[in-house]
């Protein structure tokens, strides 16, 4: 679905060329949940911006499947929910539809159905301040999903939440993404979160970043459901594997 081939990226900082990404190669399969993990400042979010087309690679190529061409095909979820406080939850959810001029009877119905499905229907006329952190994050995800993107980019979407809420919300969002059959790329610092959610973990080196290791995560193949992964020895095994790969990649 997304292929990076020898991608390098740098930008000009006060007259100096700062190399952020160097010869990055990886492939994201359709329907997969991939986590990008690496030291902070290594360029994880830049990779998402490259996929989105906000930046162009200096060298190499990024190949996107045909179903990712055109506006609204790639959904992006930011670190904070950024729900606009002057809009109701429903109007916040319609933001992307308004921008892309896709506000039709069908899309409005779809927005309503998503709100009902994910327990926010009764809050549709509420202001964002009336919602808990987890509900706000769910609303932000619905705002992205309502555009029916084929690929979801999650840029540390749980980092602003407290630990307990984070566990609940990450699990909720994992299930929503799987239920909607979306491909997702998650950027995170949190090894446990990456292991608990992803099918594949791409460990990145410190800046200029490149792929250090690609670790496939196989819970389902071992008969373990995602709800139960955290208490299994396999979870600890994958955790240690990622931790080991990150050992020499301090900031």
């Amino acid at each position: 679905m997304v292929t990076f081939e020898h991608v390098s990226f740098s930008y000009n900082e006060e007259g100096k060329e700062a190399q952020i990404i160097d010869d990055l190669n990886f492939r994201i399969k359709k329907g997969s949940f991939t986590a990008l993990i690496g030291p902070s400042g290594c360029g994880k979010s830049t990779i998402l911006s490259l996929i989105c087309g906000f930046y162009k690679p200096k060298k190499g190529s990024i190949f996107l499947d045909s179903d990712l061409q055109g506006t609204g095909k790639i959904g992006y979820m930011l670190q904070n929910d950024h729900l606009l406080e002057w809009r109701t939850i429903f109007k916040n959810i319609l933001l992307g539809l308004e921008i892309q001029k896709k506000k039709t009877k069908e899309t409005l119905q779809y927005a309503h159905s998503l709100l009902s499905k994910y327990g926010l229907r009764e809050y549709e006329n509420a202001k964002p301040s009336a919602l808990s952190g987890g509900m706000r994050q769910r609303a932000a995800l619905i705002r992205t999903l309502v555009l029916q993107p084929s690929l979801l980019l999650l840029d540390e979407p749980f980092s602003a939440l407290d630990y307990q809420t984070r566990l609940h919300v990450s699990s909720d969002i994992y299930h929503i993404i799987k239920e909607e059959e979306k491909t997702a790329i998650l950027v995170t610092h949190d090894i446990a979160e990456a292991v608990a959610l992803a099918d594949t973990i791409i460990v990145l080196t410190k800046s200029p970043c490149t792929v250090k290791e690609i670790i496939p995560i196989k819970f389902e193949q071992n008969g373990i459901t995602r709800e139960a992964v955290r208490s299994t020895p396999l979870f600890q095994y994958y955790f240690d594997l990622v931790w080991e790969a990150l050992q020499n990649e301090k900031e």
Binding site: C52, F54, T71, G72, G75, Y76, L78, Q79, N80, H82, L84, L95, G96, I99, Q100, R143, L147
Partner: peptide, 12 residues
Amino acid sequence: DPERIKLIRTLG
């Protein structure tokens, strides 16, 4: 907030 600007850009 530049993140809000980014939000609008991510929504096309």
